[in-house]
Amino acid sequence: MDDENGSGRAGRFDGHVALVTGAGSGIGAAVARRLAAQGAEVFAADIDGSAVEAATEDIPGAHVLAVDVADSAQVDRAFDEPVRTRGRLDVVVHAAGVDDPTAKEWIAEALLADLPLEVTGRLGDDAWRRVLRVNLDGTFHVLRAALRVMAPHRKGAVVTVGSSSAFDTLAGYPHYAASKAGAHALSQAVAKEAIAFGVRVNTVAPGPTRTGMAERTPAALRQGFADPRVRPYATPEEIADIALFLASEEAANLVGAVLLANGGRFTV
């Protein structure tokens, strides 16, 4: 396993130009650091410009981009940057995503009171659209932009970050599960098209991971994930290692894969 900075595989991405979304925190930030440590020139994108600046301050030569992946025009402009400055883009890791803290609170309240969940009937259109707009529409915007840039060069690797919740859906969290299941299917469909142009698309689907999103999850809900039979919450670095494997030549024969990275949590 690599050390904290990923230097155990130094040089694996030498000469590569990479773009990472959601790079301001969590898995995206870990991916950006590991790509840089392994030789890549990193374009780090996040909706929170100050967060991505802080997350990449120790990455020499990192390019910081403020991008809302739900806005297709912003995504297209972000992908224009590496092409304009370096003439190409070799690796994309799409880690940007959102959860729904309000729905999580409703789930936790029901758990604590030992009551049936009542979430779906309370979900408003805005809550539904926010999650789908970022997690599903955003994935489409990123995949489309990546293919437009990479296909003419007949090479490239794209990794999307999905979720194990698409397979083991959490009661009371339908919009998140739907958004991630949709992103998985979208990635696989695009993978079948993109490989004809030498572009590989794959997905890593984490289980619970120690990110800022997890920190905001109510304690009652986090305890519900506790299971002594499986590994504890993953670290962002552990998920980043899988994303980098999928982006590397070591995974040259993987196309349209969805790798479950949940420590056995939903499979034992």
Rank of each mutant, 00 (worst) to 15 (best):
Q188K: 15
E53H: 04
W128Q: 03
A251Y: 01
D14W: 03
A37W: 03
G263Y: 02
A251V: 03
S248Y: 00
F197R: 11
T267D: 00
I239P: 01
L123S: 07
A181M: 08
A226M: 14
D100G: 08
E53L: 09
G156K: 02
K155H: 08
E53I: 08
D241A: 15
H175N: 14
S163L: 07
P208H: 01
P116M: 03
L132R: 02
A113F: 08
E81Q: 14
E193M: 13
L132H: 02
I47V: 15
V134Q: 01
Y173N: 12
A247R: 02
H94T: 13
T139D: 05
E118H: 14
T139N: 12
V69S: 09
A40C: 09
T85I: 12
P101F: 08
M1K: 06
G263A: 11
V93Q: 11
E57P: 00
A166T: 00
R222I: 14
R154E: 09
F225L: 14
F245W: 13
G224K: 13
L19R: 14
A127Q: 06
P152S: 02
V131A: 05
I107K: 06
V64C: 09
W106K: 13
V149P: 07
T211C: 06
L136A: 11
E238L: 12
T56C: 13
L186H: 06
V52F: 00
V119R: 04
A127I: 01
V93D: 10
L221E: 08
A36G: 00
A157H: 02
V75C: 11
L19T: 13
G8D: 15
A66R: 15
G207C: 10
A171S: 14
D99C: 11
V134I: 05
A40D: 06
G198L: 12
E109R: 11
A70E: 04
A29V: 08
G156D: 01
S187F: 01
R86P: 03
G15D: 09
L89T: 06
V31G: 06
V142L: 11
I107L: 12
H63V: 14
N202I: 00
V201W: 08
L246E: 01
I195H: 10
V42Y: 04
L170P: 00
V159P: 04
A252V: 13
M1Q: 05
P82D: 10
G124F: 05
D71Q: 09
A37Q: 07
V149F: 09
V131D: 03
G263M: 12
L136W: 05
P206E: 04
I47S: 13
H175Y: 09
L221K: 13
A181S: 11
E4Q: 04
D68H: 06
F167C: 01
G6C: 13
S248L: 02
S50V: 14
V17L: 15
V134F: 01
N202A: 05
P228T: 10
G22V: 03
K104W: 12
V230F: 00
T120G: 05
T235P: 01
T211Q: 07
Y176H: 09
R129W: 03
L35V: 09
S179T: 03
L19V: 14
H175S: 14
